[in-house]
Design a protein around this nucleic acid. Structure first.
Length: 542
RNA sequence: GCCCCGGUAGCUCAGCUGGAUAGAGCAACGGACUUCUAAUCCGUAGGCCACAGGUUCGAAUCCUGUCCGGGGUACCA
């Protein structure tokens, strides 16, 4: 049972009796205990249409509310017209049993039962190691996938990459140049080539493995480079706990003829024209501000064309929910792609595109400009080795994806033991330790308990916070923004630590001990459920 | 020029479908370990929520404009 929904129903019924019809009944948790436990501003929002002072409206609504409700202890109005509810402690106390009963699945919903979702993320082309910037997307995407799984969706984590275009050709040329350089010492490096040391390593591996007689422009250079870099990418992702279920690439869409089909279908819709030797997509006729090139005058498609074919492919695979996660450098490109998919008669209503802003890296107070080509980057691997997986994951989800965040590498390494993630984990470890301590004294952690003994202020505060978890998880689903979960868990941990400092769990009072053990077990359930969705470990000791 | 994000405490950022006195962490300062873990707790200090208008009972939150920062505006991805 959800208390807010319950109150919304009650208020709505009362409003009806008072001849009022609110559009929406907002219920918020009160910050100040003078305002009870929960408050509603309905009366304030009704004031305009009802043309009456909010207080009067509030009084009227209250008049029709049942004063002997099983959960509501008190209802009162306070200026300028809020309706405040004081909730019986028994309601909060009853949560302990409910949470323990549901355990691992406390807070889950069946919103996505029988539905499939596809989350595409990272999708970096295999031209170099993943950087810190990719890390943000990796963590965001994986967590969004976790949130959907939490709500019972069957989720496919997908990685799409371009392996047929100019970038990969340039990569192959760079590797070959390093290969020739190793053999005869001549440096004939392509302009705009990839300059990182990893290119030299790949070249040297190729030399060791296949000898020095490879032909000019040999396909193996590309293939070996792609393979090596992909292994590196996958291992960085695995380190982060991110595992993709499916890798898709543009090459397959050439091979299956999907690309040709896409272009001919667009032609059929008269959305294609030739100009300056290139093939253009008439995006302007779909309401965009400029047309885009699909096939360059060189005959080579731009990334947009395979992207369109790929998105059609995703629709055809029948997912109920398709999520694309892009960096802000793609803001301008996805509308074209979706417009094309839509124009060809495919449904695009079930697409959701999440755009995240970039991470600005600071090293010794200086901005680090990231460029894969110039080999100017800090790899994700380096970061993880530096501060650890949990810190990296937490850092990237504790902030809104819309925020351009500054990441000071020196500070991160320096302060890794002060990172807020440890605060959460410490709460979990503390609980585990208390339980263990109790057991060593013969306290059964699963004994029957009387929750009505949990009357201390710190206990009730803690319980009230546990009541918000379900809401938080549902909001996370609706917005697909994970940072609310991180913020919530932070709050829960704070309430727990406060409780810990004020209430001793294991005492001679057996009844109270059992009740408090049950309470902290319940808190542990929520911490662990939440951290699991964030992909962060729950240590039993620290 | 145009489009998308952002501008909140010294720093990094929450809060944004409008709600009561704007929050956290870090940094600073002062307290609390003979106790189930001090990776904790308690307290002090720190703010024209970029700026200017507007909308209304009420604006950090919505609208308009300005300024500053990031990204895009490619026959790169």
């Amino acid at each position: 049972m959800n208390l807010k929904t319950y109150l919304q129903t009650k208020i709505s019924e009362a409003a009806k009796l008072a001849d009022l019809t609110p559009d929406f009944i907002l219920i918020t948790s009160s910050k100040d205990e003078q305002h009870g436990d929960l408050s509603s501003s309905v009366a304030l929002s009704l004031a305009k249409t009802a043309k009456k002072p909010p207080i009067e409206i509030a009084e009227k609504i209250i008049h029709y509310l049942d004063k002997n409700d099983e959960f509501i202890a008190d209802i009162f109005v306070s200026p300028p017209g809020f309706i405040n509810f004081k909730i019986h402690s028994s309601y909060y106390q009853s949560l302990v049993t409910e949470i323990l009963k549901s355990g691992d699945s406390f807070g889950k919903t069946d919103i996505g039962v029988g539905k499939t979702a596809n989350v595409e993320f990272v999708s970096a082309n295999p031209t170099g190691p993943l950087t810190v910037g990719h890390g943000r997307q990796a963590v965001l995407g994986d967590t969004v996938a976790n949130i959907l799984e939490w709500h019972s969706f069957n989720v496919t984590r997908e990685y799409y990459f371009n392996n047929a275009g100019r970038q990969m050709r340039l990569l192959a040329e760079s590797v070959e140049a390093r290969y020739r350089e190793l053999i005869d010492g001549d440096v004939n490096f392509p302009e705009d080539g990839y300059q990182g040391n990893y290119i030299k390593e790949i070249a040297s591996d190729i030399l060791n493995e296949l000898g020095k007689d490879l032909k000019n422009g040999e396909e193996l250079f590309r293939k070996k480079a792609e393979e090596a870099i992909f292994n590196d990418i996958k291992s960085s992702l695995n380190q982060l706990g991110v595992i993709h279920d499916q890798f898709s690439n543009e090459k397959t869409f050439y091979e299956t003829g999907a690309i040709d089909k896409t272009i001919s279908e667009l032609k059929g819709k008269e959305l294609i024209y030739e100009a300056d030797g290139a093939t253009w997509f008439k995006t302007t006729s779909l309401g965009m501000d400029q047309d885009r090139v699909l096939i360059k005058s060189t005959g080579e498609p731009t990334y947009r064309l395979p992207d369109i074919a790929y998105h059609i492919n995703k629709v055809e695979r029948g997912f109920d929910f398709i999520i694309d996660i892009f960096g802000s450098d793609h803001v301008d490109t996805y509308p074209d792609v979706l417009a094309a998919v839509g124009a060809l008669g495919y449904n695009t209503d079930h697409f959701k595109v999440l755009i995240h802003q970039f991470v600005t890296l600071l090293k010794k107070g200086q901005k680090v400009k990231m460029s894969t080509r110039k080999a100017d980057f800090v790899t994700l691997k380096e970061l993880i080795d530096d501060v650890g997986v949990d810190v990296v994951r937490y850092f990237f989800i504790m902030r809104s994806m819309n925020s351009h965040l500054n990441f000071d590498l020196d500070l991160a390494a320096d302060q890794s033991d002060k990172n807020p993630v440890f605060y959460l984990q410490y709460a979990h470890a503390r609980i585990c330790n208390i339980i263990k301590h109790g057991e060593s004294l013969g306290v059964n952690p699963h004994a029957n308990f009387d929750a009505s003994l949990l009357n201390h202020k710190a206990e009730l505060e803690l319980l009230k916070t546990t009541d918000q978890f379900t809401d938080i998880m549902e909001i996370a689903y609706k917005t697909l923004e994970p940072q609310g979960i991180a913020n919530y868990l932070q709050d829960l941990a704070t309430k727990f630590h406060k409780f810990y400092s004020e209430c001793r769990v294991i005492t001679d009072n057996h009844e109270l001990t059992s009740a408090r053990i049950a309470l902290i077990n319940a808190v542990k359930v929520i911490l662990s459920n939440g951290l699991k969705v964030l992909g962060i470990t729950t240590p039993e000791r620290m």
